[in-house]
Design a binder for these strands. Structure first.
Lengths: 227, 227
DNA sequence: TATTTGATGTGAAACAAATCACAAAATATG
DNA sequence: CATATTTTGTGATTTGTTTCACATCAAATA
């Protein structure tokens, strides 16, 4: 019944995030229009890629006229369902969980952590701005707020068990910070964020870079980021 | 002089991390040997992929006999330079920085945050187990410990400026948590971790999944994680 | 209004990654 | 000791992604 299902965030989607961040900044600076090569320059991709990506997501500009930034941003908001608010739960109020619960960028992007959970809810209650519930109330709260997405920041050892509970409670997507490969039914989306791996990758590449200094053989060691 | 340089962690490298985590667990359980299909099963990839990846990293097993787990892990430790300790600095002791400074998994993998920095070092000093220095001492400490890798957890607004300081101080790799595209010389490796994007991606896919429920057209919406 | 110019949008081509298929090798078996 | 079996390792094939090249369109210009 349970199986490992894994999805990768497509590179084109990551690039769209990149474009959006860039566009938001440009808009703040008062810029109104961009061309594919403007965006490309700012984000380190090629103009072709920008246009292909837009094409994939059904975004169209005006021939010769480039793209209207507000229009572009609006289209992206629709793609990402940013018109509506998204309610999230966070499980595990350790150091990382606490930091994530206070991460203001989520709110800025309409993603609200409406409840957090911990086996010891009293421990962190005092430091948290968001209600901390005991695990026994998981399903109740998830049902009440019709939550579909959870952030999992519990210790490795209990990650699978909590994940099972989340799935039973109707969660359809999990951002998993525990370094475990969760087993979930295929209709549940998992996005693993492994902080150790992120750091270790950099160490690995830095070592390589210093070994074969002079940038020779670079193309074997690195893949230029196409996202 | 400054330019956007971006690297992606290659999928094959990510998979190697995955294999390693799995192998470590198996070893703890007392298992001594694996076959490509064992590992494949546990990690959700194909046996061919496992062997191709091993081949890429120069790891060889015994025909028919599979792979010796200890041997495999040792080879991987060499690949990732895990025999030696890695000293890291962390810049920005806000909520996230503080949580990262206390993240015990780094230490378990021989990655030690030896110093942290903040514009207001006194604010967090009391809550931190690791020394918190003022930004003015950045180069001094980095030089003294011969640090090559930094974790950047400062606010968006100051990320580029701090990144410049890091590069001037001799840092060669940065794990960047600020949602900014850092401009660094090409010999510096950047790994961006954007928490909002990670969460938003999941929301995006969950929406898609619920829209076209029944898993039809799944192959367009998702790419099975090949990592 | 006709012509030139400049940027988009997208098939085609080139490149990269994953899967397949099978030879090679090591072990087990009769 | 020869044969069968099982698993690795890797070219060949397929699949997916990026880059190229150019037709298409909109605006500017004469």
């Amino acid at each position: 019944m349970k199986q490992i299902t894994k999805y990768v965030i497509k590179n084109s989607l990551k690039r769209i995030f990149l474009y959006r961040a860039c566009l938001a900044r440009l808009k703040m600076m008062g810029v109104e229009k961009v061309f594919s090569y403007t965006l490309a320059n700012d984000t380190g991709v090629t103009p072709d890629q920008v246009r292909k990506d837009f094409s994939e997501f059904g975004i169209r500009g005006n021939k010769r006229g480039g793209y209207e930034i507000s229009d572009l941003l609006e289209k992206m908001e629709n793609i990402f369902h940013r018109n509506k608010d998204h309610n999230i739960v966070l499980i595990g109020m350790g150091n990382l969980g606490l930091a994530l619960s206070k991460y203001s960028k989520f709110v800025q992007r309409n993603m609200n952590i409406v409840a957090t959970f911990d086996i010891d809810p009293f421990k962190q209650k005092i430091r948290s701005d968001i209600p901390v519930y005991s695990m026994s109330r998981l399903k109740e709260i998830i049902d009440r707020f019709r939550i579909k997405v959870a952030i999992l920041a519990v210790p490795e050892i209990s990650a699978q068990q909590v994940s099972d509970e989340l799935v039973r409670a109707g969660i359809k997507g999990i951002v998993n910070f525990a370094p475990v490969l969760l087993k979930v039914p295929p209709e549940v989306v998992i996005n693993n964020v492994n902080l150790c791996d992120e750091l270790e990758s950099v160490i690995y590449y830095v070592h390589k870079l210093m070994q074969d200094e002079g940038l020779k053989n670079l193309e074997i060691l690195y893949k230029d980021m196409k996202y």
